[in-house]
Design a binder for these strands. Structure first.
Length: 867
DNA sequence: GAGTTTGAAACT
DNA sequence: CAGTTTCAAACTC
């Protein structure tokens, strides 16, 4: 399907990718696109995505910049229409896919035709698109183009577009999703109906009030949209959507839609529910604007979905509309669960995988690993809510939302592609991303439906972070007052939502878990003089702003899921062990806990320590800093390298030798071991100040290759011991050789590209540098590289040790830029790789950005080096 | 449940 | 920017 249209798709995908980045739905795309890994890869690669995404997010989220969506609902309406049309197409495509994969209902094809008709009928209001919505326009254009061609293209386009649209307007997303759902044919409806019996209805009933409200909003929108008749259609469509979601659970293809829906609807619905019900004691702390807008958004979201349904020519009771949003969640969630459970397995594995990925992305729609603070919020937040949270994020971190979503998507894709890696790896990723998501969703829904529990079960919560975030948030939302008990605290994870016990901070400091997570304290909190309550919203917002003024990222997710993002080279990746490949942005500073207890934020987040960490004696089960892992891998490599080096010493400069060795080692390993060289370096790694200094000194002064080698070796020997330790917790990861791990990351996210990438990037630079470096770079680097930078490059420290050049070699320039771009954390850590791993621009931006950066870097480095 | 430990956040 | 203090969670008993 993809191949013929791939070119188009690619073109469009690039544009879409940008949009997608903005939206959180990249996962949706990916799943859809998954059919053509190449497209997926292209999408992921497109550097534009992240940037636009960030922008879009900014526009939305940024407190400073009121969300465009709100301002110009009308404008959005036309978009919606276009989106709908697109969405319809996309849905058609997806439907077709689903039909092929799972359902195989002929009706789907019919539905597509119907949808196409509808689309043709529906005018594409590209003109309407506002500036902020340019992305949408692009999408629309792409969609329109794509629409004409076979469904496959449309599918990709439609989904991504929708996704992209979402970031700008969550409502739009839902609407598009709804449209897509609406696109489902009657046959699907039938299926959906069956699925309904599954039980989301209960939840839906609970949510009905919300739906009603949303309906109100819908009506408004419907006005925008077009005909009142369409409204009915919407309602019907809503029902259909819900049904579809359910059905999707059964069908793989449907899964995509479901996921999308779930993705959109779930968060939104949750947000809506939360707001409306006001159940959640720990409500997300609204930004001043957000509060009002959120409600609107939530309602809009629902309404949009309904509106989308308008397009769908189906019968349905209004009541169904009410359920619609609710059902979505439930259904979706259920679907997700079912999917996870493997109900769909019977269909097509690929589909299931994709669906799973989608599921993940959808259900999650939030950065998996992310989040102690914002993460939680984000997780809990529905898209609409996300916008609200996003506001904060935007304040500190532009595009965080979008970026997060991207990460999620990537994660989802990763998880979705378990086949690639070990089942374990797959599971792991799922655990984090999905768990968190699932947990969140589950938390929100558990009360409503048992299905949730299933999904949850699927993802045994491993991550404490998740625990904190999701449970608290979810519970809070679901059971604001009741759920909380006193200090269940994070440890309770599963037990309950997070609560605080603040005595003096009044819950208005980051000390407070609730405040730090961006949620209001609930009844369960045992805090004294709590100022983090809805009553004090103004104050809370003000305080937040103050804190953000000091540290824009204060509320940003501390954990960045970036397995793929992490530069392939990074030691972290190798070390990484972090199940989700997530990392703590700032890193921990543990001294005594050795990162083995929850004192350590990294450990608490189930994330391995990264180069950014300044911990002492890191024994983080999720991944030791870099040293250990690197040491392990490096040790073997080093030996080889050392031997080679020795031989080379006579001939070449020691430096060159080292470099060449690296390149040699790396090249053969290529994608596998781009890390290895680093690892070698890493061996010296952290402890490294010693090793570094010594090595650097050696290199500079005597430049004895052996000295460096000796360091590496010694370090290896020393560090080797700890790595074994890591294996215990992370059996999965640990089991895999470091290079495998790295591969994993790359493979997951980017089917093929990542590999190339990594392999080339780390290696080529060094190699090239080596070649050239001897004369120029070497001198420059050595002399110029300030100690800070050297230190900064800690992860690669080994590089330093081996050769000053190496520091820069891997990505010298880029590093600097990155470092600069990367927040203070990067500088602090001072480690090259950290910089890479951390998205330069918005540290929040998870995978996508980082990927992009990496891609850029790689390309740039390769080009530079090559030249 | 009380007390201690720990490290992040806040402050100077 | 570094060092110190404050704070609340995490942990231990």
């Amino acid at each position: 399907m993809d191949s013929p249209e791939a070119s188009k798709i690619n073109n469009i995908s690039s544009s879409l990718s940008t949009i997608n980045a903005a939206t959180n739905n990249p996962s949706d795309e990916s799943p859809q696109v998954q059919e053509s890994p190449f497209l997926r890869f292209v999408n992921t690669l497109s550097p534009i995505k992240p940037v636009k995404a960030s922008h879009a997010t900014h526009g939305f989220l940024g407190l400073n910049s009121p969300p465009l969506v709100f301002k110009s609902p009308r404008i959005s309406a036309p978009h919606r229409e276009t989106q709908y049309s697109e969405r319809l197409e996309g849905t058609h495509l997806s439907d077709t896919e689903t039909s092929q994969s799972n359902i195989g209902d002929n009706s789907l094809g019919e539905a597509h035709s119907d949808l196409k008709k509808l689309n043709s009928q529906l005018p594409l209001p590209e003109v309407f698109i506002p500036v902020a919505q340019k992305d949408f326009d692009l999408k629309n254009d792409a969609n329109t183009q794509s629409s004409s061609p076979p469904a496959s293209v449309d599918e990709y386009l439609a989904d991504p577009v929708d996704d992209q649209m979402y970031p700008v307007n969550p409502e739009m997303e839902q609407s598009t999703d709804a449209v897509g759902s609406s696109s489902l044919t009657e046959s699907e409806k039938v299926i959906l109906k069956f699925d309904r019996s599954d039980g989301p209805s209960n939840i839906a009933e609970e949510l009905l009030p919300l739906l009603e409200e949303s309906n109100m909003v819908h009506q408004e929108r419907t006005e925008y949209v077009e005909n009142p008749a369409t409204i009915e259609g919407e309602k019907n469509g809503a029902e259909l959507v819900s049904q579809e979601h359910i059905n999707l659970g059964s069908s793989s293809g449907a899964d995509v839609f479901d996921k999308q829906y779930c993705h959109d609807s779930l968060p939104q619905c949750t947000g809506n529910d939360q707001r409306h019900h006001s159940d959640c004691a720990p409500q997300l702390m609204p930004d001043p604007i957000q509060v009002v807008k959120e409600v609107e958004n939530c309602s809009e979201m629902v309404s949009t979905s309904q509106v989308n349904s308008e397009n769908i020519p189906q019968d349905g009771s209004e009541a169904s509309l009410k359920y619609h949003g609710i059902r979505r969640r439930c259904l979706q969630f259920g679907e997700a669960a079912s999917v996870v459970l493997g109900s769909n397995k019977s269909h097509v594995k690929l589909n299931t995988t994709s669906s799973n990925a989608k599921m993940v992305s959808v259900t999650v729609s939030k950065p998996p690993g992310i989040g102690l603070h914002l993460n939680s919020i984000i997780n809990a937040m529905p898209p609409s809510c996300a916008s609200t949270t996003g506001v904060r994020l935007s304040d500190g971190l532009p595009g965080s939302k979008s970026s997060i979503s991207l990460h999620i998507v990537e994660n989802a894709t990763r998880s979705s592609t378990p086949s690639n890696m070990d089942g374990q790896s797959f599971i792991d990723t799922r655990n984090e991303s999905n768990e968190t998501d699932a947990s969140v969703v589950a938390d929100s829904f558990i009360s409503e439906s048992p299905i949730l529990t299933e999904s949850i079960d699927l993802y045994p919560a491993n991550a404490p972070d998740k625990r904190r975030v999701s449970p608290t948030d979810a519970e809070e939302f679901n059971h604001p007052s009741t759920s909380r008990k006193k200090k269940k605290t994070s440890t309770d994870d599963a037990s309950g939502p997070k609560t605080c016990n603040c005595k003096k901070s009044k819950c208005l400091k980051l000390y407070c878990d609730c405040f730090g997570a961006g949620i209001f304290c609930g009844d369960g909190c045992a805090c004294e003089g709590c100022g983090n309550r809805v009553e004090f919203q103004d104050k809370v917002v003000e305080t937040k702003q103050q804190i953000e003024s000091r540290n824009p990222q204060a509320f940003a997710p501390k954990i960045v899921p970036c397995a793929a993002d992490v530069p392939p080279n990074n030691m972290e990746d190798v070390n990484m062990t972090t199940p989700a490949s997530a990392r703590h942005k700032r890193g921990c500073n543990c001294k005594r806990s050795k990162c083995t207890k929850k004192y350590c934020e990294c450990f608490q987040a189930n994330v391995g320590c990264s180069t950014g960490c300044r911990c002492d004696g890191c024994m983080n089960a999720f991944g030791k800093r870099e040293d250990f892992v690197a040491m392990e891998h490096a040790s073997s490599n080093e030996r080889e390298s050392s031997i080679v080096e020795e031989g080379l010493d006579d001939k070449l400069h020691k430096r060159q030798k080292i470099v060449t060795i690296r390149t040699d080692l790396l090249r053969p390993a290529n994608h596998l071991s781009p890390v290895t060289p680093l690892l070698q370096c890493s061996d010296q790694g952290k402890q490294g100040a010693k090793s570094r200094h010594s090595s650097t000194n050696l290199t500079k002064s005597s430049k004895k290759p052996r000295s460096s080698l000796a360091h590496s070796e010694s370090n290896d020997s020393q560090k080797n011991a700890p790595p074994t330790h890591s294996s215990s917790t992370e059996n999965e990861w640990i089991d895999l050789p470091p290079y495998q791990l790295s591969n994993r990351c790359g493979i997951r996210q980017l089917s093929g590209g990542s590999l190339r990438w990594r392999g080339s990037s780390p290696i080529t630079p060094s190699a090239d540098l080596d070649d050239e470096s001897d004369g120029k770079l070497f001198d420059i680097l050595e002399d110029e590289t300030p100690d800070v930078l050297k230190e900064a490059s800690t992860p690669i420290k080994s590089v330093k040790a081996n050769s000053p050049i190496r520091k820069r070699v891997s990505p010298p320039q880029s590093h600097l830029l990155r470092i600069g771009s990367s927040s203070s954390g990067g500088l602090k850590s001072g480690r090259k790789f950290i910089l890479q791993s951390v998205p330069s621009f918005p540290p929040l931006t998870p995978c996508a950005d980082s990927k992009v950066l990496n891609d850029n870097e790689d390309s740039g480095n390769s080009t530079d080096k090559v030249t």
